[in-house]
Design a protein around this nucleic acid. Structure first.
Length: 256
DNA sequence: ATGTCCCACCCTGTGGGA
C-alpha cells in the first residue's frame, strides 16, 4: 500500500497540479493539508472522477485537512484533537483505511515566535502528543502523517543557523517533536534515508527550490505495529517544479 | 529586510497567513 502526504496550499487553486500528481504517482491513500477551502467548496466530484473517495474537514480561508483513498473505504474515526474546545482550526482528521489507522495533521506554523501563535503551536503539540500516546502501542497499524511544521534535526534544514529562532526549528519545537518520538514512533523517511538531505518544502521566496534551500517538515510517524512493514518511500520533488505548484512536495511511503 | 503565493473581502486592489 502506498500512502502519501501533501500540503497542497489551496486545494482548489492547486487542483490541476493535484490531479496530475495523483495520476502519475497513483497513491492508494493521500493525506492533504492546507485545503484553504470551506467544507462545501472541497472538490469532491473532481476527486471522485479521478478515482478517489474522500473525507475532509474544511475551513474558510485557512487550514483544512482531508484523507483520500482509491479502491478502499474510508471510515472516519474523528476530527479535531481533544483538550481545547476553543480550538476551531481544522487541523486533524483520522480514519481507518484498509486496516490502517491514518491520522492526517496540519500542525500550526507558530510564527512569529515567541508570541501567541507560538504558544498555540506548543499547546497543539501537547494535545497531539497525548493523542499519539494512546496509539503507539496499539496492535492496529497506525500512521500519523502530515505537515508537522518541524525540522527535527539540523540535517533537515539547508542552513540550520539561520532558522534557530524560527518557530519551525526553535529548541522548544524540536523538543516537542522529540517528545512524541520518544513514545516509540518511527520517522519513516529518516529511517529509510539515515544520512541524506531530504527536503519536503521549499519557500516561494529567493528562488529556494532552484537552490535546493529546503526543509524537511512533512513526516510519517509509524507505530510499532506497522514500523516493521515499511518497504520504501520518497519525496516527489519534481512536483515542486511544476507551474502553479504548492511550496511543499508530496511525500510517500509503501508498507506491505 | 526581502521575497511569493494562497484566500476573502473592502471586490480588478488590499491585507492576513504562511
Amino acid at each position: 500500500m502506498k500512502i502519501a502526504t501533501y500540503n497542497v496550499n489551496g486545494v482548489n487553486g492547486r487542483l490541476p497540479v493535484l490531479l496530475r500528481w495523483l495520476e502519475e504517482s497513483a497513491p492508494d491513500v493521500v493525506c492533504l493539508q492546507e485545503l484553504k477551502a470551506p467544507q462545501e467548496k472541497f472538490p469532491e466530484q473532481a476527486l471522485l472522477d479521478a478515482g478517489y473517495n474522500a473525507i475532509w474537514h474544511g475551513q474558510k480561508s485557512w487550514n483544512g485537512v482531508a484523507i483520500l483513498a482509491k479502491g478502499h473505504t474510508i471510515t472516519e474515526i474523528g476530527r479535531g484533537l481533544a483538550g481545547d474546545p476553543e480550538d476551531l482550526h481544522s487541523r486533524y482528521i483520522e480514519a481507518m483505511v484498509n486496516g490502517v489507522h491514518i491520522g492526517c495533521l496540519y500542525l500550526p506554523n507558530g510564527n512569529p515566535a515567541p508570541g501567541p501563535k507560538f504558544d498555540y503551536k506548543l499547546s497543539w503539540f501537547r494535545r497531539f502528543t497525548e493523542h499519539a500516546a494512546k496509539l503507539v502501542d496499539s496492535k492496529t497499524p497506525v500512521i500519523l502523517t502530515g505537515d508537522y511544521n518541524v525540522m527535527p534535526t539540523e540535517m533537515d534544514v539547508y542552513k540550520p543557523e539561520s532558522w534557530v529562532t524560527d518557530a519551525l526549528f526553535r529548541p522548544e519545537t524540536r523538543a516537542a517533536f522529540a517528545g512524541v518520538m520518544g513514545q516509540g514512533w518511527t520517522d519513516a523517511i529518516r529511517t529509510l534515508y539515515p544520512d541524506e538531505k531530504i527536503y519536503t518544502f521549499w519557500d516561494y521566496f529567493r528562488n529556494a527550490f532552484a537552490r535546493n534551500a529546503g526543509l524537511r517538515i512533512d513526516h510519517f510517524l509509524l507505530n510499532k505495529a506497522i514500523a516493521g512493514k515499511l518497504t520504501g518511500g520518497g519525496v516527489d520533488g519534481y512536483v515542486r517544479g511544476w507551474e502553479k505548484t504548492s511550496d511543499h512536495a508530496p511525500v510517500w511511503i509503501t508498507v506491505k
